Amino acid sequence: MLTHGQNVSYGNSVRVVTTNIIEGDIDPETNAISTRQEILNLKILCQTPQEAGQIANTLNPLLAKGEPIYFSGGLPSRKQDGSIEVVVEMPKLTKASK
């Protein structure tokens, strides 16, 4: 992957990047709901590049249709660019692709 002009290797994994818009309280000065955006990177670890390809090919049509995708993951960590990364597992996809 090329990011900010640098080549970054993620090993055997699939990345799903989401933008979450979080609504807060009403700002008393503007009378508008305060919102903020957070970028969340989900990293799906894979055994092989072929498994990563199979998972990506399974996820792409679901993402295009806007269907929900369920993940099981660990604690999030904040990256240097301000985004948050969670390493996740997708047992149904990874078992099916082996």
Rank of each mutant, 00 (worst) to 15 (best):
G5F: 12
N7F: 11
V8I: 08
G11Y: 00
V14R: 00
R15Q: 13
R15Y: 07
V17E: 15
T19Y: 04
T19L: 09
I21G: 00
I21Q: 07
I22D: 15
I26Q: 08
D27C: 04
E29M: 09
E29S: 10
T30M: 10
T30A: 07
N31V: 11
A32W: 10
A32L: 13
I33M: 05
S34K: 14
R36I: 05
R36Y: 10
R36K: 15
I39V: 13
I39P: 00
N41Y: 00
N41L: 02
K43W: 00
K43F: 06
L45I: 15
L45H: 06
Q47Y: 07
T48G: 03
T48R: 01
T48H: 02
Q50K: 09
A52M: 01
G53D: 07
G53L: 03
Q54D: 08
I55T: 05
A56E: 08
A56W: 00
L59C: 00
N60F: 14
N60T: 12
P61G: 08
A64P: 02
G66F: 10
P68W: 00
P68N: 03
Y70D: 15
S72Q: 06
G73Q: 01
G73D: 01
L75R: 08
P76N: 09
S77E: 14
S77A: 15
R78T: 14
D81H: 12
D81G: 03
G82M: 08
G82P: 02
S83D: 03
E85W: 01
E85D: 04
E85L: 06
V86K: 02
V86R: 02
V88G: 03
E89W: 12
E89P: 04
L93C: 14
T94P: 04
K95G: 11
K98Y: 09
K98A: 12
